[in-house]
Amino acid sequence: MPLVRGFQLFCPTKRGCLGARRATSRSSGVTVYATAKRAVFITGGNTGIGYETAKALAAQGFRVTIGCRDAVKAGLALARIKEAFPSAVLDSVPLDLADLSSVSDCAKRVLDSGVQYDVWINNAGVMSCPKMSTAQGFEYQLGVNHLGHFALTNQVLPALQTSNKPVRIINVASAAHAFGKIDFNDLMLDRSYDAWQSYGRSKLANILFSYELNRRLRPGDNITVNCLHPGIVKTELGRYMAAETTWYMPLAMGLMKLFMLEPAQGAATSIYLASSPEVEGVTGKYFVNCSRAVSSNDSYNHDTARRLWEISQELTMAP
Results as ranks from 00 to 15, higher is better:
L95Q: 02
V119R: 00
G238V: 07
V156H: 12
T35K: 05
G231V: 02
T153E: 03
A39Q: 05
S27L: 15
T134I: 13
L217A: 02
A173S: 14
L111F: 07
A71M: 11
A274I: 01
D190S: 08
Y272M: 01
F150A: 13
F287C: 10
S276P: 11
S312Y: 02
N206L: 06
K181E: 14
I170R: 00
L251C: 10
N297F: 04
I81S: 09
D303P: 13
G48Y: 03
F179T: 10
G44L: 12
G200E: 08
G67Q: 12
L100N: 01
S113Q: 03
P12S: 02
T162Y: 12
A305F: 08
Q265Y: 15
G220N: 13
L255W: 04
T269L: 10
S163C: 15
Q60L: 15
S25A: 15
C11Q: 06
V103F: 13
Y248E: 04
W309G: 08
A79R: 02
A135G: 07
A268W: 03
A175R: 05
T35H: 09
A23R: 05
R215G: 05
A264W: 11
D99G: 10
H149Y: 07
M256V: 13
K181R: 08
T53S: 11
F41S: 03
F184L: 06
A36E: 10
R218L: 10
G266D: 13
K37Q: 10
R80A: 15
D118Q: 08
E83N: 13
C129N: 03
A173L: 12
W309N: 02
N123F: 11
A54P: 09
N145F: 10
A74I: 09
P166Y: 12
F10K: 01
Q313F: 09
D112L: 13
I81L: 10
L9F: 08
E280A: 15
A176W: 03
I207D: 06
A59D: 12
S133I: 14
V40F: 13
P219T: 10
